[in-house]
């Protein structure tokens, strides 16, 4: 549905986006991650046709954004960063205006407006002018605008920014549901959002893609992935550490905290976490340790994010003792 090829954008001497390529198909929700100023918004602006790329091409459906912008834009719903809207209009009036620009006038327009008012929980404020609304409502008004024509492609720049936890949850559920039938790209700073909603994630740093995969794949790149956390009610930390170190397939053991006693066991490369955790459980049984918890770490996205986007500073190889 969306084909981005070798997209590049220069602002004067500064390269904001440096040759990114990816595709998004229908039924996919692509998370766009990256530190501030990495080029996320600039990329989205180029994909939606707001700013022309210096190089490269964007294809939406079968239409090229540069050569055939109007039909390409027709397929897209776009929520820009900071969710702008006309302050002097009522919520309803604003949505009716965008519906009309999308070619939905008269009854079809009214229906579309009512549909998104309901979907975005805006019915109570529909006659209020946008400038009197709180940030969350304004945000949802602009979000409503992006889905008013039930587009095949949705581009959302920080759709949950400024929402309260309940609203965040609603929007995430909505995105996930719409992601079943649409091609969606959304950017965010919140990593748990990526795990909750995305079928794939791209991490972009200084204008280039540094990682591209499912949230699961990305998490596997974490140092912690596959490590086993052992929690005990009490016991001698050093003695237990020494015992665990001699277990089959164990590379090293670190003590995370003394009380409650928490240790992390790193399996050797090549030996599975499952075997090692079974070994730990057996040992705990034999030694009569009061085992409280045993967990195989999945790896953490924020750690991956940090280690990828901060190559200059020392990445956190080990958690602090």
């Amino acid at each position: 549905m969306i084909q981005v090829q070798n997209l590049r954008k220069e602002f004067g001497p500064k390269v904001a986006v440096n040759g990114i390529s990816f595709t998004v198909e229908k039924g996919e929700v692509l998370g766009f991650l990256g530190p501030n100023g990495a080029g996320k918004s600039t990329s989205m602006r180029m994909i939606t046709g707001f700013i022309p790329p210096t190089e490269g091409s964007v294809k939406v459906g079968e239409f090229d954004m540069l050569e055939n912008p109007i039909p390409a834009k027709r397929l897209i719903g776009y929520l820009p960063e900071n969710a702008p809207s006309y302050a002097d209009m009522s919520v309803r009036g604003f949505l009716a205006f965008t519906a009309e620009l999308r070619g939905l006038s008269g009854d079809a327009g009214k229906k579309a407006v009512n549909r998104v008012l309901e979907m975005c929980f805006l019915e109570n404020v529909q006659h209020q002018s946008v400038e009197t609304l709180s940030k969350g409502y304004r945000h949802r008004t602009c979000f409503a605008q992006s889905i008013i024509h039930d587009p095949e492609v949705l581009i959302l720049d920080e759709p949950t920014d400024g929402l309260d936890p309940n609203q965040k949850h609603e929007v995430r559920t909505l995105i996930k549901k719409m992601g079943e039938t649409k091609a969606i790209i959304f950017s965010t700073h919140i990593l748990e959002e990526v795990e909750a909603v995305c079928s794939r994630a791209i991490i972009i740093d200084r204008g280039t893609i540094v990682a591209n995969g499912t949230p699961r794949d990305l998490k596997m790149r974490s140092d912690q992935a596959g490590a086993i956390t052992v929690k005990l009610v009490d016991g001698n930390g050093e003695a237990i550490k020494a015992k665990l170190s001699h277990l089959n397939g164990v590379d090293r053991v670190t003590i995370l905290s003394e009380r409650p006693l928490t240790l992390r066991v790193w399996p050797r490369k090549g030996s599975g976490s499952d075997d090692v955790s079974r070994g730990i459980a057996d040992m705990a049984f034999q030694e009569r340790w009061s085992l409280q918890g045993l967990q195989v770490e999945e790896g953490r996205l924020d750690e991956v994010f940090r280690s990828i986007t901060l190559p200059d500073t020392k990445s956190t190889k080990e958690e602090t003792k």
């Binding site: 046709g49 109007i70 006309y86």
Partner: peptide, 14 residues
Amino acid sequence: RLGTIELLLTMPVT
């Protein structure tokens, strides 16, 4: 100033 220009020019409008 409002940023609505981004909204307006990403609509199917020349």
